[in-house]
Design a protein around this nucleic acid. Structure first.
Lengths: 126, 126
DNA sequence: CCCTATGTTATAGTAAGTATAGAACATATA
DNA sequence: TATATGTTCTATACTTACTATAACATAGGG
């Protein structure tokens, strides 16, 4: 599987799970319509509790990355609310950029880094 | 003061404090060499406990934004470790950009937003 | 020298969040 | 009917967040 949890990390397990699933979608390792392991399967594979996986899945559904169904399990289904996506991006970028500015990171350097990461993530979107 | 805490937020108070102080530095509302209120003064002004402020100050020192002194209080002192700053920026941007890509936010849109925020934060650095 | 203010540390308590465990439920599928 | 699904419930242990007192060494002002 594409999931690897760092149990020594200060980041919560369910958050690591969310981030890694989202990353897998971004690099198209997971595609629209594909199914994820059930909460119990995923929990067994990773070696964590079912409820921790369930929490991650519930957040991913709330944030518009998954649709959960009692019969077909968890399926990738992106909710493309562009307005919301942009405002969330804005909110996430602000504190990150504030830190960068304090450390004398120029606008050009920051943009170069964004471009680098976009390329790394497959360049599926230009 | 430039600090306003949202007590209903799910973000920890000491984290809100850190973010707002860093933002104030970024927009040059606080400048190198300036002093912040003492942990006790700041705690009184905001209406929170001394230790919560102390925790925020300690993190800001660790991350190279402040220097703390027993006599002169807390003073803005940016540690310009560019390598570290860039690697931290990289690490922070990754999950944010992964989310954006999933939501079909193009590279150009993301870069435009970075430019917008840089301009908002004063354009002191181009 | 005394008093005050500084950051710092220690202890303790409450509340909330994280992760675990076991059990049960309704429902859809094979 | 039997199985597997997400979902919900209760319960426990642990960690973190926040508050509350108290104390300490040290530097500066009067």
């Amino acid at each position: 599987m594409f999931i690897s949890i760092d149990f020594n990390s200060d980041e919560a397990i369910y958050m690591q799970l969310c981030d890694q699933i989202i990353r897998a979608i971004a690099i198209q390792e997971l595609r629209e319509g594909e199914s994820l392991p059930s909460v119990r399967q995923m929990a067994d594979e990773i070696g964590i509790n079912m409820h921790t996986v369930n929490k991650a899945y519930a957040i991913l559904r709330k944030d518009g990355f998954l649709k959960l169904d009692r019969r077909s399990g968890a399926m990738i289904a992106i909710d493309l609310d562009k307005i919301k996506a942009l405002s969330e991006l804005d909110e996430s970028l602000r504190p990150v950029i504030a830190r960068a500015i304090c450390k004398d990171v120029s606008k050009e350097e920051a943009i170069a880094m964004v471009e680098k990461i976009y390329k790394e993530y497959g360049g599926s979107i230009d």
